[in-house]
Write a protein that binds this DNA or RNA. Structure first.
Length: 261
DNA sequence: AAATATGATTAGTA
DNA sequence: TACTAATCATATTT
């Protein structure tokens, strides 16, 4: 019955279990009861990177439900293990007590037994924690990874961004303030603005031809506004090449040279 | 359904 | 640290 002989505990690393605990806590799995699940909500909001505007809470409800499910399973399993552990300990103690009638059993031996049992069960617990962590990670990547929830910006947001881009084509690097203003105008975050410009720059550069039409369109758009200022524009500029000359107009010189190679 | 567009993420750089 | 380039994963177009 007591086949607990081969207990070669493969190292139960403390840092490992600490890591798992921390993560479970951070995800709101092992935290306080469902008092709004503020921890989980915060984690969700943080992971979502903050996408204001249209969507926001509908998809999170799904996530939260699943997280609550995981949480419940985790807790019930944990409780089950704890109960089983104490039950088993009791059982072993009883057996030892019985045996003590026929042979002397030192308290040290009992202590050792209990320690072994506890170690065994805590390693099982760790497995539970690990698999729970895994489940949470999968859930997160499934629901919260922003890439999976990509939404195009609305028409007027891209309008605003493009307008800025093409009217600053020679140096499409908005300052921090400019970014903030654009973000406000487009109802997106500053980092989204940065992303957009990063993508736009590289993609424009990569295939300028593809963007000619767009460039013309916005050039005309802004030209209307600028018309009042530049009243002496009477030279015959060829409409096919609104941005004649430089291939990488906005690159800083040294970088442009590097990129030629 | 395949091709293309697009926002976000990542590694690497100066 | 802000940027580029490559890449991912989804959205949209064809």
């Amino acid at each position: 019955v007591l086949s607990i002989r081969g207990v070669q505990d493969e190292d139960p690393p403390d840092p490992q279990i600490m890591r798992l605990d921390n993560m479970l806590l951070a995800e709101g799995v092992s935290g306080p009861e469902k008092g709004g699940g503020s921890a989980a909500a915060a984690a969700a909001a943080a992971a979502a990177g903050g996408s204001p505007g249209s969507d926001g809470s509908i998809e999170h409800s799904d996530y939260r439900a699943k997280l609550a499910q995981i949480r419940q399973i985790y807790h019930s399993e944990l409780e089950k293990y704890e109960q089983a552990c104490s039950e088993f300990t009791n059982h072993v103690m009883n057996l030892l007590r019985e045996q003590s009638r026929t042979r002397p059993i030192s308290p040290k031996e009992i202590e050792r037994m209990v320690a072994i049992i506890h170690r065994k069960f805590s390693s099982i617990q760790m497995q539970l924690k690990q698999s729970t962590c895994e489940a949470v990670m999968i859930l997160r990547s499934r629901f919260l990874d922003a890439r999976r929830k990509r939404r195009n910006f609305n028409k007027q947001a891209t309008e605003v961004l493009n307008e800025y881009f093409y009217s600053h084509l020679s140096n499409p690097y908005p300052s921090e303030e400019a970014k903030e203003e654009l973000a406000k105008k487009c109802a997106i975050t500053v980092s989204q603005v940065s992303n957009w410009f990063g993508n736009k720059r590289i993609r424009y550069k990569k295939n300028i031809g593809k963007f000619q039409e767009e460039a013309n369109l916005y050039a005309v758009k802004t030209a209307v506004d600028a018309a009042s200022v530049s009243a002496q524009a009477s030279q015959a500029n060829s409409p096919a090449t609104p941005n004649s000359g430089t291939v990488f107009p906005y690159l800083k010189p040294q970088r442009a040279i590097n990129n030629m190679l």
